[in-house]
Computed example of a mutant assay.
Amino acid sequence: MPPLRTALVEDDAAFRAALASAVMQTPGLRFVGAAADLPDAQRLIERERPELLLVDLQLPSGHGRALIEEAARRLPDCEMVVVSTLGDDESLFGALAAGASGYLLKQGSAAQVVEQLMSLRDGGSPLSPVLARRLIRQLAQAPASPGVPACDARLSEQELAVLQAASQGYRYDEIATQMGVTPHTVATYVKRCYRKLQVHSKTQAIAQARRLGVIC
């Protein structure tokens, strides 16, 4: 499997350099560039079209969530992982709803952060343990805590199309042909549906989407 083309968006120069060095030393990843603010990041993803984007949320000229949302639209095959000091519920759930594939806190070295990215290869979503525990607690609550919805059903047009087709019995390769994309892109949309709907299977995703009224 070819290495993932990896780009970084981080305004702290020292951490950016350390993160870039860790990526370059990690088998399975190929460093293609870094940016320090939102405009540079937008140009970077347009120029390099990365397959993995590491994004800090606190940027000098905007919020990292806006970049995640833009990259999710423009690069449907791209995995996006937040790397941030922010660990509050609003930042966590907001980033996942925007399309992030994972969320890692800057609690260890850059090399330790990059090491956690390897779960992406197996279809996983890298998540710092403290955030994973909080997410599990939130999912176990009934009803959910005020201000933290049980799920965020703001599915994109493409994600809705994939779920609708899957609910009608189409296979991923058939859906890919219908949409004019690759099966890998369809699988990426499905993973985003899982995260937003907070489920772990296609059957659960379809059932949840129907319950919420977003597909018929």
Score class of each variant (00 low, 15 high):
M1I: 12
P2E: 09
P3C: 05
R5C: 00
T6Y: 09
E10H: 13
D11V: 09
D11R: 06
D12C: 08
F15G: 01
A17E: 14
L19C: 09
V23T: 09
V23H: 02
M24H: 07
P27L: 09
G28M: 13
R30E: 14
V32E: 07
A35P: 10
A35C: 14
A36M: 11
D37A: 08
A41S: 14
E48Q: 11
R49Q: 04
R49K: 07
P50Q: 09
L52H: 05
L53E: 03
L53W: 15
D56I: 11
L59A: 13
G62C: 06
H63Y: 05
L67H: 04
I68C: 05
E69R: 09
A72H: 03
R73Q: 13
R73W: 05
R73G: 03
E79S: 15
E79P: 02
E79R: 15
M80A: 03
V81M: 08
V83T: 11
S84H: 10
L86G: 01
D88Q: 04
D88G: 04
D89G: 02
E90H: 03
E90M: 10
F93R: 04
A97S: 07
G102Q: 04
G102F: 06
Y103G: 02
L104I: 14
G108T: 11
G108F: 12
S109C: 13
S109R: 14
S109V: 14
E115P: 03
E115H: 14
L117K: 03
M118Y: 07
L120S: 04
L120A: 12
L120V: 13
D122L: 15
S128V: 12
L131D: 04
R133F: 09
R134M: 08
R134L: 10
Q141G: 10
A142E: 05
P143D: 12
A144E: 09
A144I: 10
P146R: 13
V148N: 06
P149I: 13
A150T: 04
A150G: 08
L155F: 07
E157V: 14
E157M: 08
E157H: 08
Q158H: 04
E159D: 01
L160I: 12
L160N: 02
V162F: 07
L163G: 00
L163W: 08
Q164C: 11
A165Y: 07
S167Q: 05
Y170A: 15
R171Y: 12
A176S: 04
A176G: 03
A176C: 00
T177M: 03
Q178M: 15
Q178T: 13
P183W: 06
V186L: 06
V190H: 06
V190C: 04
R195L: 13
Q198N: 12
Q198K: 05
H200L: 13
H200M: 11
H200A: 03
S201Q: 12
K202H: 08
T203R: 07
A205Y: 03
A205T: 00
I206G: 04
A207P: 00
A209K: 01
R211Q: 13
V214P: 11
V214L: 14
